[in-house]
């Protein structure tokens, strides 16, 4: 049978469109804001250092242009990061794990459970404070094909971890 492009197939196979994707914990937006502020603090720190320590005329004359461009980028970056938060969604199906993210570039990655090598949950110190966890799902593929679902409520993360672990170990 050759793969044909008719509509028939889409009804016989489980459809990715019918999956209800679940948003990650609302708490995670705090971590995003915190990380962004940290990043911006670093960038502006460097800018301030440039202002006071590098006395080259070209830089000093155009300093405020540079500053406003960086500021504009930072603000845009911050806004997109906040808006993109709503796009971070995941779903666990019987046979695969789906993770969607990205506002400007939206991507939906699917990893079949039978291809998972191992699973790991990790928690940064803020995540521990907010009772969140990151679920890392590793495949044997290129490093880009690993899934990293951030900002899951700890209980959900543990549940998914146990569920997937038992499936992965049961298969082999």
């Amino acid at each position: 049978m050759n793969f044909s492009n008719t509509q028939i197939h889409s009804e016989t196979f489980p459809n990715i469109d019918n999956v209800i994707l679940k948003p990650i914990s609302k708490q995670y937006i705090k971590i995003i804001i915190f990380n962004k502020i940290l990043k911006f603090a670093l960038v502006f720190g460097i800018l301030i250092i440039i202002k006071f320590f590098i006395k080259k005329e070209i830089i000093q004359d155009n300093y405020w242009y540079l500053f406003s461009i960086v500021l504009l980028f930072s603000v845009l970056n911050f806004i997109t990061a906040l808006l993109a938060f709503k796009k971070r969604k995941y779903a666990i199906r019987e046979h695969d794990v789906i993770y969607a993210k990205g506002l400007i570039v939206n991507s939906i990655t699917t990893v079949p459970v039978s291809r998972i090598q191992h699973i790991e949950t990790s928690r940064s110190w803020i995540a521990r404070k907010l009772n969140l966890a990151t679920l890392n799902i590793y495949t044997a593929g290129e490093s880009g094909s690993d899934l990293r679902i951030k900002g899951l409520p700890l209980r959900d993360a543990m549940q998914i971890n146990d569920f997937l672990s038992s499936k992965v170990n049961g298969n082999t």
């Binding site: 570039v105 990893v111 079949p112 291809r115």
Partner: peptide, 14 residues
């Protein structure tokens, strides 16, 4: 032999 599949789309492509 597929390990994972990713669908990508940016806002212009949407």
């Amino acid at each position: 032999k597929i390990q994972s599949i990713e669908m990508k789309q940016n806002i212009f492509q949407k």
